[in-house]
């Protein structure tokens, strides 16, 4: 505005006596606001940032059960980089996380599409059904799957038995435990992507489908050309969040295999627990935790980059 009127901001300020506002001025005007913020600020610093900073510091010490420990430099990181089990669990964690996350995505789309096709009442009920695993405690999820897969008492082996087949040992050997963990984890959280996808699908204007139909697009074509493009942004959001959560996932895999048989399904989260509470080496546990943070952050960066690529999507 100032430009259009041919005046500078300073001229206008001068004309109407508007002084430069200092920090004290602003505090004076808004002190009550600051007062309200202070508790949150303190709480966040004290309960969130401080522990994180402390955790990072701890990785440079030999802290263990009950003691803060002394500074030992990079020893914990050296230990990490020479530890076979850590590398193994790092690799398996990546497989687990991506296997789980992408299966959750696929299943989430299918569930969301199904929900979208249903009538109101059925939608509510099927919605509840789909969501229920997500709202069950992960530990309970582990127990449920244990009951499902247990070779002796499990439901799935019994089902195989009905058809005269012998089920493989889902929680033993060097193949099935991996599959079981990924399937169970997918089951537990796919509803999250279903919720987000369902919301995205509902918000797609029906006219776009109708326009496409009039243009000669069949059902599949409409899904590809209208639905899918609208799911891209939600997909990135789901990917980032689910990846982070799946990396941190502990309860259900712990309940289901606890990292076993042997250490075959040792996720980094379970390894962290074991190092902390079996070997009581808290500093090293934190160091593994740092690796998990790095992993989540790298994934997030990759996803954000992907968004950048699609930056011009809606512009």
């Amino acid at each position: 505005m100032a430009q259009e009127q041919g005046r500078t901001a300073d001229q206008i300020r001068e004309r109407y006596g508007i002084g430069e506002r200092t920090l004290t001025d602003r505090i004076k005007d808004n002190w009550v606001g600051y007062l309200f913020i202070i508790p949150t600020f303190i709480a966040f610093t004290g309960l969130f940032y401080f522990p994180i900073a402390r955790g990072v510091f701890m990785t440079f010490t030999n802290a263990s059960l009950g003691v803060t420990g002394e500074f030992i430099g990079l020893d914990n990181y050296a230990w990490l980089l020479t530890n076979d089990l850590f590398f193994y669990s790092f690799g398996w964690t990546i497989v687990f996380v991506f296997g789980t996350t992408f299966t959750q995505l696929g299943l989430g789309v299918v569930a969301a599409l199904l929900l979208n096709e249903l009538r109101e009442v059925a939608k509510d009920w099927v919605g509840v059904l789909i969501m229920s695993p997500y709202f069950s405690a992960p530990l309970a999820g582990g127990v449920i799957w244990m009951w499902f897969l247990d070779s002796n008492f499990g439901f799935v082996p019994k089902l195989f038995g009905l058809f005269g087949l012998t089920a493989p040992s889902f929680l033993a050997g060097d193949f099935w435990p991996f599959v079981s963990l990924i399937v169970a984890q997918t089951w537990h959280d796919y509803a999250y992507s279903a919720i987000i996808y369902a919301a995205a699908i509902v918000s797609i204007p029906s006219e776009q489908y109708e326009a496409a139909a009039l243009s000669g697009a069949g059902r599949l074509r409409r899904f590809r050309d209208v639905t899918l493009p609208h799911l891209l942004i939600p997909t990135i959001v789901i990917l980032s969040l689910r990846t982070a959560w799946n990396i941190a996932e502990f309860s259900q895999p712990f309940a289901l295999t606890g990292g076993g048989p042997g250490t075959q399904t040792m996720l980094m989260s379970i390894l962290t627990y074991r190092v902390a509470f079996v070997n009581t080496n808290f500093a090293r546990a934190y160091t593994i935790g740092m690796a998990m943070v790095v992993l989540s952050m790298s994934a997030a960066v990759i996803y954000v980059k992907a968004i950048d690529q699609e930056d011009d999507l809606y512009v």
């Binding site: 033993a172 050997g173 060097d174 076993g260 048989p261 042997g262 250490t263 075959q264 074991r274 079996v278 070997n279 009581t280 080496n281």
Partner: peptide
């Protein structure tokens, strides 16, 4: 850690075929 991790876990790994 010697009992549970170094001895037992290593044997457990062997039983699991690792």
């Amino acid at each position: 850690p010697i009992r549970w991790t170094d001895i037992n876990e290593t044997i457990s790994q062997a039983i699991a075929g690792q």
